[in-house]
Amino acid sequence: MNKRYQIFVSSTYVDLKEERERVIYELTKTGLIAVGMEQFRATDEEQMEYIRPQIDDTDYYILIIKGRYGSLAPDGLSYTHKEYLYARKKGIPVHAFLYKDINNLKFGEMDNSVDLIDKLNKFRDELSSQRIVDFWETTDDLVWKVKDSINSSIRRRPGIGWIRGDQAMDLNVYKELEAARKTIDQLRNQVTQSENAAVSFPKDTSSGADLYNIRCVSFLNGREYENFSFSMSWDEIFMFFIEHIYIEKPEDNIMGLLSQHIINKKYGNSQDISTNQASLRLEEFTQIRTQLEFLGLIEAITKDTGIGKRLHWRLTDKGRKYIGQLTAIRRNSAESPTPPAPRP
Rank of each mutant, 00 (worst) to 15 (best):
T43I: 15
H312I: 09
K17G: 03
Q287W: 07
N253M: 08
L311H: 13
T316Y: 04
Q6E: 09
W234Y: 11
W313H: 07
N253C: 05
R68G: 00
I65L: 13
D44S: 12
T138A: 14
S229P: 02
Y61D: 01
Y50M: 08
K3D: 02
D134Q: 11
S71N: 06
L171A: 08
F107V: 15
Q325M: 11
D44R: 12
S206L: 10
Y50C: 05
N196P: 00
V114G: 15
S153V: 07
P344A: 09
N264T: 12
G256M: 08
I254S: 01
L16H: 02
H244Y: 12
D118R: 14
G76N: 05
I51T: 02
T205W: 04
W234G: 00
K175T: 14
H312L: 08
L105W: 05
A34G: 03
A300R: 10
E46K: 13
H81Y: 12
D317Y: 04
K265G: 15
G308C: 10
N2I: 13
N103W: 11
T192G: 04
R320M: 08
K119S: 04
K318F: 07
R88G: 03
E251P: 01
L32T: 00
R281S: 05
V143I: 12
D185Y: 13
R22V: 09
S11F: 01
L142C: 07
R320S: 06
G76E: 04
V23P: 00
L282D: 09
I262L: 07
E126G: 06
H244E: 06
S231W: 08
I242A: 12
F238G: 01
F107P: 03
N276C: 11
S218I: 10
E38Q: 09
E236M: 09
H244I: 04
G76Y: 05
K318E: 05
F219Q: 04
N151T: 14
I62N: 00
Q6Y: 05
S153F: 03
D125V: 11
F240D: 00
A34M: 02
G36E: 01
